[in-house]
């Protein structure tokens, strides 16, 4: 005796299964859009098999570069160029983050609804959004190369400008999320505006903002490699040179250095971030989620 057999005697009306028309149309539309994309992108799909035919060959060449004695010529040069380039990239990212951090503090206060006048808030937000819309590469192209010339200095400034956009927005949002109690208490005690901003607003958001800065540093390391391809120096410039001459053993070493250093910096920066946040009473996941939009 089971559920199925006995119940069949008292069979009631079955509700009709709802139509799947909407889901089907949605799925078809998505497929059409993707197919159209595949066609309109002008991609030469016929070359797709090359990944498998050429890929294996190049990959083994890259590995070959890695396993060579790093103190023999020319590999010693490759390794020192890779490490030097990475160091320059990290410096660029660090200075860029510093510039962005310093500039984002006033921008954040100006863009916070519970601090500034509504008109000021709107104007600042438009500026921050405009910065966030454009990639760092565009700043480097438009503003910096004509004035600062090619090189890491221009790259750091471009990263700094880019960082102001995201850091300013996140700082403003953090300021808007503070506990208003201490602000009220400070006002009631007759504290001047500057003291209120420093000791109630800034004290409350400091851990969160520091975590955002570190996050931005991690992102800037990747972004600095991007700027390298237009000649802003760092590992990106070395990498695009190596690709130009198809020096696969060199490329292998470069990619290895990028991966290892980035993973290490992410781990250290992540640990510091968690430590800063752990003592602050702000939810760790909330900070992570906010920072995901960096």
């Amino acid at each position: 005796m089971n559920a199925a057999s006995t119940a069949s005697e008292t069979r009631t009306v079955r509700p009709e299964e709802p139509g799947k028309a909407r889901a089907t149309i949605g799925a078809i539309a998505l497929v059409v859009v993707v197919l159209a994309g595949g066609f309109l992108s002008n991609a030469d799909w016929g070359k797709l098999p090359d990944i498998f035919t050429e890929g294996g060959k190049y990959f083994s060449l890259m590995l070959k570069g890695l396993v060579q004695n790093p103190f023999s010529e020319p590999y010693s040069e490759y390794w020192s160029a890779a490490l030097g380039g990475m160091l320059e990239s990290i410096s660029m990212a660090w200075i860029g983050t510093m510039i962005g951090a310093v500039l984002s503090i006033p921008m954040g206060f100006l863009a916070a609804r519970n601090v500034s006048h509504p008109v000021v808030v709107q104007v600042t937000r438009v500026i921050l959004n405009a910065i966030r819309t454009l990639p760092e590469l565009v700043f480097a192209i438009i503003l910096l190369l004509p004035i600062f010339g090619f090189g890491p200095n221009a790259g750091a400034l471009a990263l700094g400008i880019g960082a102001v956009g995201t850091l300013g927005k996140l700082t403003a949002e953090a300021l808007e999320g503070i506990d208003p109690g201490p602000v009220e208490a400070a006002r009631a005690a007759g504290a001047p505006g500057s003291a209120i901003l420093r000791w109630t607003y800034w004290s409350q958001v400091l851990p969160e903002v520091l975590a955002f800065w570190l996050y931005r540093f991690e992102i800037n390391i990747r972004a600095s490699a991007i700027l390298g391809i237009i000649g802003a120096g760092g590992i990106g410039s070395v990498l695009s040179q190596a690709f130009r001459y198809r020096e696969w053993d060199f490329i292998g070493i470069l990619l290895f250095v990028i991966i290892v250093v980035t993973v290490l910096v992410d781990a250290v920066s992540g640990a510091v971030r968690h430590r800063i946040i752990a003592g602050s009473g702000v939810s760790d996941t909330k900070v992570e989620q906010d920072a995901a939009t960096l």
């Binding site: 559920a3 199925a4 119940a7 069949s8 008292t10 069979r11 009631t12 009306v13 079955r14 509700p15 009709e16 299964e17 709802p18």
Partner: peptide, 19 residues
């Protein structure tokens, strides 16, 4: 499989909520 699900729902008297 759907019929079997219907019968189970019938046992607890909410077969009309199946969808």
């Amino acid at each position: 499989e759907k019929e079997r699900a219907f019968r189970s729902l019938e046992r607890v008297g909410i077969v009309e909520k199946a969808w």
